[in-house]
Amino acid sequence: MPARTKVVTVKRGLWENLYLPEIVRGLGVTLKHFFINTLGPKSKRQIVTIDYPDVVRELPERYRGVHRLNTREDGSVRCTACMMCATICPANCIHIEAGERENPASRDIEKFPQVFEIDELVCVVCGLCVEACPCDAIRMDTHVHMPPVEHRKDAVLEKPELMSRGTKSIAVDGGAGPDWRDKYTDLGSLTQIYRPDHIERDRERPARR
């Protein structure tokens, strides 16, 4: 189907065709907004830009930020190197090498990731890794932008850095058992949310004038 077009003829009088008076009028519009937004009363200001990074916009709750790896009770990483995230990743940005624990206690999980790397430059921030993770190990709920890096290799986040944002997960390894409904009546209260320091700091600090 061809695009339908409508021809509109703009009638210009002599005043418009003189060019300069209209330029001055346009400048006047711009200047009006400039003075309202800088000197005018706060209620009338329409400015949408913020002083990032001194001011940080509040992100939606499910915003997908930089990855993190959650930990267990004992501080070890929850990830068991099952490769679900690496398998589903459409960008192939997750590299995991599995290892076996030296002397596990009888009920410990034997497998853990020796190497866990995410190339944040390759990542397409789709969040499928979080969906796929059966262990609540990988999450993207950090509310942290990937900071700009000077060298590409700096964008490859390794296990210690990913774990530095990790918190203890509420999920129970191997499931909470058959009576989990009785044990956990209020699931919301058990959630530990990661709050980057600078967000809290910036909330309290007024915007720079």
């Binding site: 068991t80 099952c82 679900m84 034997e110 262990c135």
Partner: peptide
């Protein structure tokens, strides 16, 4: 069965 497919080599 422990259903530990996550770490099981047979998965």
């Amino acid at each position: 069965h422990p259903v530990d497919c996550v770490i099981c080599d047979k998965a």
